[in-house]
């Protein structure tokens, strides 16, 4: 469903500190599967995720979603695609402090103008499914790391996205919590959601929940 063709990404192009983070990536990501990007630090995994998730545009090459070229679209359309198609779980979770778990989960849905009650029900159902119902009114900064991550996952799912993007989802978790995350991931695969994640963690990459592993090095895809 997502196709990248000879995608390159440069930072600070044309300046003395120009840096090519991606130097020609061609990759097809299949729908309803869990794909993991693996590679050493600085190999371009996060950069690739930002291009797939419409957070940034490639310097050259094409990104297409369902056969439609999205690499040249203006910011407004990218935002709309991002909101409708992708849910993000960031490495630092990036929850908004001072708001409750519930409010954080509902945030991505605000611009859609969906009725408040409906939103609330959906958020409650998600928190319930992630076994966080009892913490829904707690401010996020009071939650433990694992709880924060589950809030972040619930937030990523509020708009019911086709694709879930997770950057180093287990980097801040201990083994038990990482295993729990993999269990949640497995259930997404069964639901038919597309998941793209990055990880160094063998526990993640080698787990049965992951259908395909893509290895990266120096901004290129390498065969293992």
């Amino acid at each position: 469903m997502i196709e990248l063709r000879d995608v390159k990404k440069a930072f600070n192009q044309g300046q003395h500190n120009e840096y090519w983070a991606l130097s020609g990536i061609s990759l097809t990501i299949e729908a309803r599967r869990v794909t993991a990007l693996r590679g050493p630090s600085g190999s371009g995994k996060t950069t690739l995720l930002t291009l797939i998730g419409c957070l940034a545009r490639p310097t050259s090459g094409r990104v297409s979603l369902h056969g439609r070229d999205i690499s040249g679209l203006p910011e407004r359309f990218l935002t709309e695609i991002r909101r409708k198609t992708f849910g993000f779980v960031f490495q630092q979770f990036n929850l908004i402090k001072g708001l409750s778990a519930m409010e954080n989960v509902m945030l991505p849905a605000y611009p859609t103008g969906r009725p408040h009650r409906e939103l609330k029900q959906r958020a409650e159902a998600l928190l319930d499914r992630l076994r966080l119902a009892h913490r829904r009114d707690a401010r996020v900064e009071w939650l433990s790391g694992g709880e924060q991550q589950r809030v972040a996952i619930a937030r990523a799912l509020i708009n019911d996205p086709e694709v879930l993007i997770a950057d180093e989802p287990t980097a801040n978790l201990d083994t038990a919590l990482a295993k729990e995350f993999m269990a949640i991931l497995e259930s997404f695969g069964e639901e038919g959601r597309t998941v793209i994640l990055t990880s160094h963690d063998p526990l993640v990459v080698e787990s049965a929940a992951v259908n395909r592993v893509v290895d990266m090095r120096d901004g290129l895809i390498v065969e293992p």
Binding site: L99, M106, L107, G113, P115, H116
Partner: peptide, 23 residues
Amino acid sequence: MTVWFEKQRHLIDFTLASLIRRK
């Protein structure tokens, strides 16, 4: 139209929550 109103309502909710956060 109702979508517009819902959206503004959400924005106001969020704004109020933000204002209270930085009391």
